[in-house]
Amino acid sequence: APRIVNISVQSEEDHSFHAKCTAEGEPLPTLTWTGPLSTNVTSVSSGSYLVTKELRHLTHDGRYTCAAVNSLGRAEGTVYFYKYRAGGGSWVLVLLFVSLGIKALALLLILGVGAFWKG
């Protein structure tokens, strides 16, 4: 029966990502990727009982499943791809610093008024 030997997501030098699935079995299983908008698939077979199929240029977050099927059965493996994206949180920092600045000015004003009344 087929067996998923390895399934992973890797990055390339050009900062793109690809998913890679390797399975074994006799007869050699057929690999199929399913997931969000799976495109640009290339297959590479190596050895007499191993097959590898890559899903190149992953751009959509989500669950990607590799299915290995032959006449003796089926095996599946899943990877999750979530590309980190820095949020547009710069306005939060501006709001934080403005708020702290107003509080610091209020404190200085209170201290100044207190010093003026005492002295």
Rank of each mutant, 00 (worst) to 15 (best):
85 R>K: 13
41 V>R: 12
111 L>F: 13
104 A>T: 10
40 N>P: 04
18 H>F: 15
107 L>A: 11
99 S>K: 09
17 F>R: 06
113 V>L: 11
69 V>S: 00
67 A>T: 15
30 T>Q: 04
53 K>V: 01
86 A>I: 04
82 Y>K: 05
16 S>Y: 07
119 G>M: 14
38 S>F: 02
49 Y>D: 11
68 A>R: 03
115 A>S: 06
51 V>I: 12
91 W>R: 09
66 C>M: 00
35 G>T: 11
87 G>E: 10
75 A>Q: 10
98 V>W: 12
10 Q>H: 14
60 H>K: 07
20 K>V: 09
92 V>Q: 10
55 L>C: 01
73 G>W: 03
27 P>Q: 08
94 V>I: 13
26 E>L: 06
11 S>V: 03
14 D>Y: 01
13 E>N: 10
5 V>G: 05
115 A>K: 06
103 K>I: 15
2 P>F: 00
8 S>E: 14
40 N>M: 07
20 K>D: 07
19 A>D: 03
104 A>Q: 10
102 I>P: 12
27 P>G: 08
17 F>K: 07
105 L>W: 06
38 S>D: 08
39 T>G: 07
108 L>A: 07
13 E>T: 12
102 I>M: 13
102 I>H: 07
86 A>M: 09
50 L>K: 11
31 L>T: 06
43 S>R: 09
3 R>Q: 09
113 V>Y: 08
38 S>V: 15
106 A>R: 14
56 R>A: 05
115 A>Q: 09
47 G>R: 06
5 V>A: 11
18 H>R: 13
37 L>I: 04
32 T>D: 03
1 A>E: 14
55 L>G: 01
33 W>R: 06
76 E>V: 15
42 T>N: 11
88 G>Q: 10
40 N>A: 11
112 G>K: 02
116 F>P: 02
34 T>W: 05
90 S>D: 10
38 S>G: 05
24 E>Y: 03
58 L>K: 02
85 R>Y: 05
39 T>A: 12
118 K>S: 13
89 G>I: 09
42 T>H: 02
94 V>M: 12
59 T>Q: 01
109 L>K: 11
74 R>L: 15
57 H>T: 06
47 G>S: 10
32 T>W: 00
8 S>L: 10
44 V>M: 14
105 L>I: 09
9 V>N: 02
24 E>N: 13
58 L>W: 02
30 T>R: 09
111 L>Y: 13
90 S>M: 04
37 L>D: 13
66 C>T: 06
73 G>K: 03
1 A>W: 04
108 L>E: 04
62 G>C: 05
14 D>N: 11
47 G>I: 09
72 L>D: 10
61 D>A: 10
19 A>E: 05
107 L>E: 14
58 L>I: 05
9 V>Q: 04
49 Y>V: 15
26 E>Y: 08
60 H>E: 08
38 S>K: 06
64 Y>N: 08
36 P>R: 01
119 G>K: 14
72 L>T: 10
54 E>T: 03
20 K>G: 07
108 L>Y: 06
